[in-house]
Every structure is written in C-alpha cells, then in structure tokens.
Design a protein around this nucleic acid. Structure first.
Length: 632
RNA sequence: GGGCCCGUAGCUCAGCCUGGAAAGAGCGGCGGCCUCCGGAGCCGUAGGUCGUGGGUUCGAAUCCCACCGGGCCCGCCA
C-alpha cells in the first residue's frame, strides 16, 4: 500500500494531458520536488521548447479537480503540484495502522529472485572491521529484498583452498592438542588466526633467508635483511599474545621448509587426499565456528556455506574451465614453465570487449593453473560464479570489496570467453570501499587487525558508558543492542562507494546519523505508545495541523517509495538516510507537541502518528539489522 | 608507471547514474528555551571558489578531457 499512489496518478494524468496538448510525444518525468515551496511533485518542460505562457494556458485548460492534489501551479517551465495533506494523511495513517512494521511493502518493489554472496572471509583468521562492512551490506541487501517480497538466498564462500589455509593447517597439525585446548577457552578463530600469522611469518623468514644466501648484490642483501627484521618483529608481537603457543610453533616449524610443505599439502588437498582433507577441514571448521558466532552477534544469518574445494576443485569444474578455455581460444593460451596463462589483455583488445563488458582500461594476463597443476583463485572463482548463476535465480549479487576490481573483471572476461553470456549478465560485482580506523594499519597476514568482535564489544561498553548517570541497569541491558546498532549503522549509512573511517565520536553520536540516535527515537515513540495503552482506530485528521505534523506525515507517506528506490538500486544507505531524517523530524515534534495530554480527538490523531513513525522505524530496523531495543 | 574509487560548509555526509528553481541535512560555533510523554533535549542564526583548470550545453556539483590530493589494486596470493 503506497499512500502517495493516488496523488501520483492524478499528477501523472495532468502531466500526460498537458504533454498531449502541447504535442509532446514522450511523458515528462515526474519527480519529487527538491526545493521547498514548489509543491510536492514536479514535472519539467525545459527540453520541449515551450513557452511559459503556453504551458500556463495549457495547464489551465487541462487541469480538472483533484482529490489528492492541491495547488497545481506553473513556475518557469516547471509544473508543480502540492498534496492534499488531509487526504494523503488519512491514507498514510490507515496504511500504517493496518500494516504496522510491514508498512513500506508494495507489489512494485518485487524484482525477482536473488542469490547474495557476502562476507566470504578466508577461513584462517577472525573477521575484522572490513568484513563487518561486507557482512552488514550483504545481510541488509538480503533483508531489504526479502522485505520487498523477493526470494533471497544468502551464501558464504569458504575459501578452503590455497597456500594460506595450508599454513594454518601445518601449524594446527604440529600443535594439535595445545590448539584444541585453547580453542575451548578462547574464540577458536582468534586462536587459529594467531597460528596462521605465526606460520606465515616463519615461512616468510625462511624464504628470505634462502634468498639472502643466494644473493650477491649488497644493496638487495640489505633490503632482504630489513624484511627479515620486519617479520621477526611480527613474530615477536605474536609471542606477546601467546608466548607458549607461538614459541612452540617456531621450535617445531622454524627449520622446516614451510612454504614447500604448504604447496605440497595444497596439491594433496586438491587431489582429495583423505588425510589432508581431514586436517584442513578441522582447522577450517574451527575458524568458521568463530566467524559464525561473530556474525550471529551482528544479526547475520547465512543460508548456505559453499566450500570452494567441493564446488570448484573436487567436482572438476575448475579444470574444465581451463581445458575449455584451451580448446576454445588456443591462440590466447600461453604456457610458462608448465603454468597455463590466458592472455586476457590481448583477448579483450582483439575482440573489443571493453565497452560491452564495461571493463577497466587495464587488463593484465591471467594465470589459470600453476606449474604443479593446482588451480588458482580466479579459476576456481569462475567455476563458482557459474555454479551460482545456475542455481535458478534471476540475479547473483557478489558483495566483494573494491580491492578485487581487477580479479572480478577477469572473472567476467573468462565467463565471456567460455560463451556464458547468460550467466555473465546475471552476475553483479557489488563493490564497496575499505573501512579504516584512525591510526591503525591492518594486515591479516601479519596478524595485525582489529577484530569485528572487539569493535562490537567496544561499541557496547562505550554506549553503556555514555548512558551512565541514567538508569545503569537499563543501560547495561541495552548495551549489546545499542552496540550492534551503532556498528551496523556505521557500515550502512555511507554510500558503499565511499571509504568509511570508523570513529567512535561519529559512530556513537546520539544526536544524529547513528544507530543509537535512531534507537533512542524509537524508544521515545514506543514509550508514549506503551503509556497510552491502545489506539482508537477511528482517526480524525484535525483541520489545523502543526507544521511538524504535516512534515512527518508526508515523510511517512514517502516510505514505500524510498523502499522501492533502495531495493531497485541496491542501496541500504537510502534507508539509513531516510530513517535519520524521519528521526530528526520526530524528535523536534516530540518536544513541541504533547501526545498523551492532548485533548481528543487530537490525542488519537497524534497517537496514530507516533504509531506510524514507530512502525516505519521498526521496518527500517529490520532492513538495516538494527536491534529495536525497548529501553536504553 | 598504469587501473578502479573518492574529493560538496570547520567536521560527518546527501545530491552526480538520468544536467534544469535559491546546492540540502546534522554536528560543532554563536545566541536563546525548558516546572512538559525519557534532557542522550528543543528553537534560532551565521557558515559553501561543489579539489583546480579547460570543454560540451540555452543551462554543469551532475556529462567529457587534463591536472592536483587521498584510499585500494596491478602475484604461478586470496
């Protein structure tokens, strides 16, 4: 139910009539007026080369009487119309009272079925802030599209292939008992994260030492020594976290050729060696248990966990991708020391695909297979993309950070080269920019990151701290909900295209544009309704409304179209912005207009208005995944 | 060196896809209010070369080009 629909239709009829009279063949676009004082709806006639007088006269001739519009006017070459606020208000309040937190849904926002892949962090460490943005975006897209009545399935791609997993597995099998014991006490992903970083550092140091022995050039030698020092200090830092564990890892693996062992392990894993398979899966499951717990805390549920090994490797799909490309495009295949390289650069150039596939201007060649016969991430990703595209959804949305722009372009090119036009069209690389923390440099390989767990925890304790001075028990209870709300809002409120700097003053700013601000608004609205104990269904719209009441009603009336726009353009931030605007209006109103103490019938009207605001906030909270706390 | 993205008020951001009215919010600043449903409040006000320079257009924050500044990426890593 869209309360603006009748008014929109009336305006549409007017505009169409005017256009017809003026001999304009197309229908001028109808917009929500951007500037105050020029009505609610606008149609522009600039490009049709008509005079203002002519437009005015035509409008006068064509316009009829309207139920939902008022004040049709021409200003310059704009045709504007205001709303009949009373009529629209009736529709809005009755829709909100009837639908509650489902208000906002309209049939027009259904757009098909969606497979959404998101988060897909490597299973060797805990989730960090960047994954938080990915998870919040992916999850909210899923919620938004579900709210709109679409079929949605969420997927997490478990990258259990490749060297980094093998590093974790090597460390794990070397110190199994100690690690398992720790994983019972601490979060298992944190434990494995430490193991992974330590083994990685050991491997790096060993590789560099070997290089140092062979190296002749003094300049280069000094540089290698510098790099070794850097990794040694990484190791030292990891020791501070768990001296016993990291010390034992150095002892056990320090003299071994960890890099070669990892490569060997990887080869056996891809071949499906049962022994390796068992170890790798054990370590991966430990990490996933931890990652799952973090996601659950954020209110994120994943429907399917897709294992790279199964879907791309053991199924033979990745190999088929390679052989099929060799068969179709032998002229673009090069073999370098046994590795298979696809000359994506020349392929794109020769076939002139840049425009058609909307590719970046620089495309490097892409290696499809290592010289030891194992697959590479991009090849497996192509196999996975095909698998996704063939699961019977209209669209596949892959939420992947902008770091992978080039890799995702490769996937697109390779799909095209395989002749999978249909599949390519379905797949969307939903990109978002990085999250940074002031003064923190992150590197997963160096075990240097701020975990999502610590961010959520920090947000919760800080929000409890901010509430000190009020009821501390309530603050305590609400802390986690407010913490989660603040974190999710911080990730979702900016356009995905913009880098986000995570700063506590902003994230927890109660006055505006934050999760807690919305939650606080919600608590206020809810508290009024609780005290009122029930709303009369017979709402009389008063003849004299406050300016704030008019504004809130029109804002609430716009909610369904905001939902539609957000869903159509896949932008949860539109929802966040809208809720922030609504909250600002409501808080201002709250201060001016007593609800419970008002005389009837104004009291009932105001209660209905509060209920409508509360309902919109609830719907928006569902979409953004912000906990609707009752008190805070 | 090349590629992708970002640059709008002191700060955080919306608007850019699809050009059109005086470029919108909030925070902070300044000045005020409050025996009232939750003060983590409210009202008012000042504050802008839309990074810079060209171009296209009747008209550019919006489209094109160049440059400057920031982030990310350019591997037989993922």
């Amino acid at each position: 139910m869209d309360p603006l629909k009748p008014a929109h239709e009336e305006f549409l009829r007017l505009v169409a009539g005017v256009a017809r009279e003026l001999g304009i063949r197309e229908l001028p676009e109808i917009e929500r007026t951007r500037h105050q004082g020029f009505g609610f709806f606008t149609a522009r006639f600039h490009k049709y080369r008509v005079g203002q007088r002519q437009l005015e006269e035509t409008v006068r001739r064509v316009q009829g009487s309207y139920e939902y519009l008022s004040g049709v006017s021409v200003s310059g070459l704009y045709l504007n119309a205001d709303l009949n606020v009373r009529r629209v208000a009736e529709l809005t309040l009755s829709a909100a009272l009837r639908l509650g937190s489902r208000y906002g849904y309209t049939d027009e926002c259904r757009a098909g079925s969606f497979l959404i892949e998101h988060t897909s962090a490597n299973p060797v460490h805990p989730l960090h802030v960047g994954h938080g943005r990915n998870a919040a975006l992916g999850d909210s897209l899923a919620r938004l599209l579900r709210f709109c009545g679409n079929r949605v399935e969420t997927h997490f791609y478990v990258n259990d292939c490749g060297a980094q997993v093998m590093y974790a597995a090597l460390g794990y099998s070397a110190l199994k008992a100690g690690i398992e014991e720790r994983a019972r006490r601490q979060k298992p992903d944190a434990v494995i994260g430490l193991v992974y970083s330590a083994v990685n550092a050991i491997a790096e140091i060993n590789k560099l030492k070997k290089e140092l022995e062979r190296e002749q050039d003094d300049e280069r030698k000094r540089e290698i020594i510098r790099e070794i020092d850097e990794w040694v200090s990484v190791l030292r830092r990891l020791m501070d976290a768990d001296r016993d564990l990291v010390g034992k890892l150095v002892e056990t693996l320090g003299r071994r050729d960890v890099a070669s062992e990892a490569a060997e392990l990887n080869k056996r894993y891809e071949a499906g060696d049962p022994e390796v398979r068992k170890v790798v899966r054990e370590v991966v499951e430990l990490v996933l248990a931890g990652q799952r717990a973090t996601l659950a805390k954020l209110g994120v549920e994943i429907d399917h966990w897709d294992y790279e090994s199964e879907i791309a490797v053991w199924s033979g799909e990745a190999s088929r991708v390679v052989s099929e490309l060799c068969r179709r495009w032998p002229q673009y295949i090069e073999r370098r020391d046994g590795a298979v390289v696809f000359r994506a650069d020349r392929f794109v150039e020769d076939l002139g695909l840049r425009e058609a596939l909307d590719l970046p201007k620089f495309i490097p060649p892409v290696t499809l297979m290592r010289s030891d016969g194992t697959t590479l991430y991009v090849t497996r990703d192509v196999a996975y993309a095909l698998w996704q595209a063939r699961r019977g959804f209209d669209r596949v949305i892959r939420v992947i950070s902008s770091e992978q722009t080039h890799e995702q372009a490769h996937v697109k090119i390779l799909l095209h080269a395989l002749g999978c036009a249909e599949e390519t069209r379905k797949i969307v690389h939903y990109t978002y920019e990085m999250v940074s923390l002031p003064g923190v440099k992150m590197s997963a390989r160096r075990g240097q990151y701020v975990t999502l767990d610590s961010i959520i925890e920090d947000a919760s304790s800080r929000s409890a701290e901010l509430a000190r001075g009020r009821d501390s028990k309530i603050a305590e209870e609400a802390a986690e909900g407010v913490g989660v709300g603040s974190v999710r809002y911080a990730f979702l409120s900016a356009s995905p295209r913009k880098p986000v700097e995570f700063r506590w003053e902003v994230v927890l700013d109660i006055r505006q544009n934050s999760g807690p601000f919305l939650q606080y608004t919600y608590v206020r609205a809810r508290s009024i309704l609780e005290k009122a104990a029930g709303i009369d269904g017979n709402i009389v719209i008063p003849d004299e409304m406050l300016q704030e009441e008019r504004e809130i009603l029109m804002k609430v009336a716009e909610w369904p179209s905001v939902v539609r726009r957000a869903a159509a353009s896949l932008r949860p931030d539109y929802i966040a912005e809208f809720l922030n605007g609504l909250s600002l209006l409501f808080n201002s109103y709250y201060e001016k207009a007593p609800v419970l103490k008002a005389e009837e019938p104004v009291r009932s009207f105001r209660l209905a208005l509060v209920y409508a605001v509360k309902s919109v906030l609830e719907a928006g909270f569902y979409i953004l995944g912000i906990p609707a706390v009752a008190r805070m």
